[in-house]
Each structure stands twice: as structure tokens, then as C-alpha cells.
Simulated scan of single mutants.
Amino acid sequence: MDHWDELRMFLAVAEGGTVRAAADALDVNHATIIRGIGRLEDRLETKLFDKPSTGYRLTDAGADVVDLARQMSTASSQLEARIFGRDQSVSGPLRLTLPISFATDLLMPTLAAFRAAYPEIALEIIGSGAVANLGNREADVALRVVVGGKSPPDNLYGTRLGAFHTGYYVHRSLLADGKPASAAAWLLGADETVPTTWQPGGELRMSSTPIRFAEMRSQFEAARAGMGITHLPCFLGDADPDLVRVPAGPITHVGDIWLLTHADTRQTKRVRLLCDHIRSAMRGLAGRLAGQGQGGGGAVGVG
């Protein structure tokens, strides 16, 4: 398809708003993007962007081209997915997206075993909280926590692997006999609020000033350093010897864990092999994910 590369660059600028954002999205340098836009404008004999200091802004002609470029992008992704779905080799690229904590603290031994068994598969592990579009081949396999009892979209093939629970954790030294020398802080994510439906039990004395973090790993390390109480996946908090559940703190069923593939690619052999490895591993991890690591199965409740 003539000028498809230039159209991809154009679409990336239109969606990202700047040349830098487009270059990052396509993993090329900004000069390549600028030249590509120039070639496309010359080819179409029209100006596609105004270029104010705040970023690239679509002209009327550019807005018309965006819709067509998106349709072409979708068609291209569908074509790639159909071809990929017929691939029965055990070599080549394979992209897995999953929450960062699942990658770093739960499934890395499983992924290492998969790599050892199939060294010719070029596995790309995308640890992210963002939801990848499997239809556009942003990933081939996705492991997601789905809240609210929802099911996957119709174009995805899904397997429910179990329930996902969270709880409140604190360094065990703060629960020692006698009150701590200083008040414990609430260690919160950017959008979290101080709980109002329960109060920590035991000898904990809470500060009125919370500490906020941009991501969960920092919250986890702050709790391990004895700064206060934080909200963590049970599989993460229960596994750390320095942390214990906060007395009277709820264990909450956040959602269900789904293993997802696209309908067009799920029969690809390397997709099936990776899914088999993950399903097998998750069966053995069901207790940890359900919050049975501290206090046994009777401690788990739906919050």
C-alpha cells in the first residue's frame, strides 16, 4: 500500500498531538516523522496540520484524512491478526500484557520457564496498568483484573482464572506491644482516599496527614520501611515477611482475573503455549490471589 508508512506517521501525530509523541509511539526519531508528514502533504497536495507552538493541530483536510487513516489502520491490524492466527511455529514475536505486580511478583518464574522451554519465541513482557487493544495487535495475550463481574468483549476469547483480593498491610514492628513512637501514615495512591468505614485495630495510632505515591511499588516499599498502612494485592502483602495485615482491616474482592486473546489469533501455536503455561501457574496461585496467605481461607471476605 503506497504511503502507508506516511499515513501511520500522520495518524500518530494526529492522535498524540506532537511530533515527539508520535516518534515515541512508533519508535522512530522526530526527523523521520517530519519528513513523512511532508511527503504525505506533497502527495495529497494539501496541508494536513497547522503548527502552533503548542503542538500540531489538524486542518479541515487533515480531519477528513484522519477518519480514513483510522479505517486503514484497523484493516491492517485485522489482516495481521488473521495471518498471525494461522502461524503454527514455535518461533517469532509474542507480546504479553499484564499488571506490573503480576509480572514482577507473581509470574516471572513461570515466564522464565516458558522462555527456557521455547527459546526461539521472542517474548515481549508489557507490564502496564493500561488496557492494551488486542484487536490492533498491541498485545497477543492479556492478563487483566476485570471488576464488576463483567465478561470480556465479544471479539476476545477469555478464560476466568480466579478471584483477585486486596487488603491493608503494615510493618509488623508497628504492631509490637506498646504504641509506636510516632503515628503511622496512610500510604495512598494518587486517587485513593483514607478509609472511612473502618478503623485500624490493635495499638496503631494514625497520623492525620497521608502520604501519596504515583505507583504501587513505592507504596509497597514505604510500608516495608515502616512508614504506615497501605493497600496491596494479597498475593504481594502476604508474601512479605515484614508485613502483616492490619487488625480489623477488610479483605476485598476487587474483581476476577481473566486471560484474554483475540478471536483471530488465539489458535496461533505460541499463543496457545503461553496461555497453557499461565493457566497452569495460576491454578497453583489461586490461594495467594484469594488472600489465603495469612489467616487461611476463613479470613477472606467480599468487601
Rank of each mutant, 00 (worst) to 15 (best):
L236S: 06
G255W: 09
D264V: 00
W198S: 02
R212H: 06
I251Y: 06
R245S: 09
W198Q: 05
G228H: 03
V194Y: 08
R212Y: 06
V246S: 07
L236A: 12
V254H: 14
P210G: 04
A239S: 14
F220N: 01
V244T: 11
G255T: 11
V254E: 15
F235W: 10
S218T: 10
P247L: 15
P195K: 10
L260D: 15
G228M: 00
P233Q: 03
E221W: 05
P195H: 12
R270S: 13
H231Q: 10
L232W: 00
L232Y: 02
T252M: 15
T268I: 00
G226E: 09
V244C: 07
A222I: 08
Q199D: 12
F235I: 05
M227Q: 11
H253A: 15
V244P: 01
C234Y: 00
A263T: 14
T196P: 02
H231G: 01
T265P: 05
T252C: 15
P241I: 07
H253W: 13
E221G: 01
A263I: 14
G255C: 09
M206Y: 02
V246E: 04
D238R: 03
G202C: 14
T197W: 04
V194F: 07
G255L: 15
S208L: 12
A263S: 12
V254S: 11
V246D: 05
L236E: 07
F220R: 08
W258N: 03
T193H: 09
H231N: 10
G202S: 11
Q219S: 01
G202M: 11
E203F: 10
R270T: 09
T197Q: 11
P200I: 11
R266L: 11
S218A: 10
T197P: 01
G228C: 02
R224Q: 05
G249Q: 03
H231A: 02
Q219C: 04
T209G: 03
R224V: 00
L243F: 02
P195T: 08
P241E: 07
H253Q: 15
G237H: 02
D240L: 05
Q219E: 07
G201S: 13
L243G: 03
R245V: 10
I211N: 05
A225H: 01
G201V: 13
L243A: 06
P250R: 14
E203V: 13
S208Q: 13
P200W: 13
T265V: 11
Q267A: 12
L259N: 13
R205G: 06
R217P: 04
A239M: 04
T268F: 01
R270G: 09
I257E: 01
V254D: 15
S207Q: 00
C234I: 02
G201D: 10
W198Y: 02
I251T: 15
R224L: 03
T261K: 06
E215M: 04
R217L: 08
H253E: 15
P241L: 09
A248Q: 14
T230F: 00
P200M: 13
P233G: 05
S208C: 09
K269M: 12
R266S: 06
P195V: 06
S218H: 11
P233S: 10
P250G: 14
G202E: 04
V254F: 07
K269I: 01
L260N: 15
G202V: 11
I257W: 00
V254G: 03
D256H: 14
R266A: 07
G255M: 12
R266C: 06
A222V: 07
I257F: 00
A214M: 00
A214C: 02
R212S: 08
A248E: 14
D240R: 06
